[in-house]
């Protein structure tokens, strides 16, 4: 059935069963492949997107449940927080294989939008759902603090 979604500020109509995970609609129907498939079970965070500003695992979000909510993917971020996060990530050479990093960045942007000066333990709780098998955690933590400093300026 046709379903209309708000994706990155645009109304997009797709042909999909309502139980289809948002992840597969983004990737297979809308060609927004920056959002990654890692586990399919809300265990790794690679598929994280923003739904009304909240970090959400798109692999466990059915398209039929989204309604009017606004979905933003890695391709559509552009807020001050997003720019600070991407700049910090690039300056600190955070990425390795990079496959988890769209999800990491989406979680970090949601955290900083909510909390301008996260502590280490705020970072632990916001980011523990995002697995990085390359274990870039140490730099992700530093980059979130760095982005927070950029936002202060």
């Amino acid at each position: 059935m046709p379903i209309t979604l708000s994706i990155n500020g645009q109304a997009r109509t797709v042909e999909a069963e309502p139980d289809t995970p948002l992840l597969w609609v983004l990737r297979d129907e809308l060609d927004l492949v920056g959002t990654k498939f890692g586990c399919g079970q809300a265990l790794c965070g690679a598929c994280t997107v923003h739904v009304d500003g909240m970090a959400v695992r798109s692999c466990q979000t059915a398209v039929g449940d989204i309604g009017e909510s606004k979905v933003v993917t890695i391709e559509g971020i552009g807020s001050r927080e997003a720019k600070a996060v991407q700049a910090a990530w690039q300056d600190l050479n955070v990425v390795q294989c990079g496959y988890c990093q769209s999800g990491q960045i989406m979680s970090a942007v949601a955290l900083l939008t909510d909390n301008k000066k996260p502590t280490d333990s705020d970072i632990d709780s916001a980011m523990d759902g995002n697995v990085c098998r390359c274990a870039t955690y140490h730099r992700i933590r530093a980059a979130i603090h760095d982005a927070a400093r950029r936002l202060e300026a």
């Binding site: 920056g34 959002t35 993917t73 890695i74 391709e75 991407q86 990530w89 955070v94 990425v95």
Partner: peptide, 10 residues
């Protein structure tokens, strides 16, 4: 790194 921008923008 040469892949910084690509891998932080999806």
């Amino acid at each position: 790194r040469t892949d910084n921008v690509l891998k932080t923008t999806g």
